[in-house]
Amino acid sequence: MQRRQFVKLCGAGLAAFWLPSLSFAAAATEQRFIFIIQRGAADGLNTVIPYADPDYQRLRGALAVQDINDTKLDSLFALHPSLVTAKALYQQQHALFVHAVASAYRERSHFDGQNVLESGGTRAYQLKDGWLNRLLGLLPPAQNEAIAFSPTIPLALRGNYQVDAYASAKLPQPSDDLLLRVSQLYQQDAQLHAAWESAMQVENMADKGMQGQNSQQPAALGNMVGDFLSRPDGPRIAVLETGGWDTHSAQNSRLSKQLSDLDTLLASLQTHLGNHWQQTLIIVATEFGRTAAANGTGGTDHGTGAAMLAFGGALPAITASNRSWPAGKVIADWPGLKDSQLYQGRDLHPTLALDKAITALVSAHYGLEPGKVARTLFPASS
Rank of each mutant, 00 (worst) to 15 (best):
S198T: 15
A199H: 08
M200S: 12
M200G: 10
Q201T: 15
V202L: 14
E203I: 14
E203A: 13
N204C: 12
N204E: 14
A206E: 15
D207V: 14
D207E: 15
K208Q: 15
K208H: 14
G209F: 04
Q211I: 10
G212D: 12
G212N: 07
G212E: 11
Q213N: 14
N214V: 07
S215K: 13
S215N: 13
Q217D: 11
A219Q: 11
A219W: 09
N223P: 05
M224L: 14
D227M: 05
F228A: 00
R231Q: 14
D233M: 00
D233V: 07
G234E: 11
G234D: 08
P235M: 01
P235R: 03
R236I: 07
I237F: 03
I237Q: 02
A238M: 09
V239R: 12
L240D: 05
E241S: 06
E241K: 13
D246V: 02
T247Y: 02
H248W: 07
H248Y: 01
H248M: 05
S249K: 14
S249R: 13
A250K: 12
Q251C: 12
R254G: 06
L255T: 10
L255A: 09
K257C: 07
K257H: 14
K257W: 11
Q258F: 06
L259N: 08
L259G: 05
L259M: 07
S260A: 15
D263S: 08
D263Q: 01
L266P: 01
L269I: 04
L269S: 00
Q270R: 01
Q270H: 00
Q270P: 00
Q270M: 06
H272E: 09
G274D: 06
N275H: 10
H276A: 12
H276W: 05
H276G: 10
W277P: 03
Q278C: 03
Q278V: 05
Q278L: 07
T280M: 01
T280H: 00
L281K: 05
L281H: 04
I282T: 03
I282D: 03
I283G: 02
V284S: 00
A285S: 04
A285I: 06
A285K: 11
T286R: 06
T286S: 07
R290D: 09
A292R: 01
A293H: 11
N295P: 15
T297V: 04
T297I: 09
G298Y: 08
G298V: 10
T300G: 02
D301F: 03
T304Q: 14
T304L: 14
A307R: 10
A307N: 13
M308I: 08
L309V: 04
F311W: 01
L315R: 02
L315A: 05
I318E: 02
A320N: 08
A320Y: 06
N322D: 13
R323N: 11
R323T: 15
S324K: 13
S324W: 08
A327C: 04
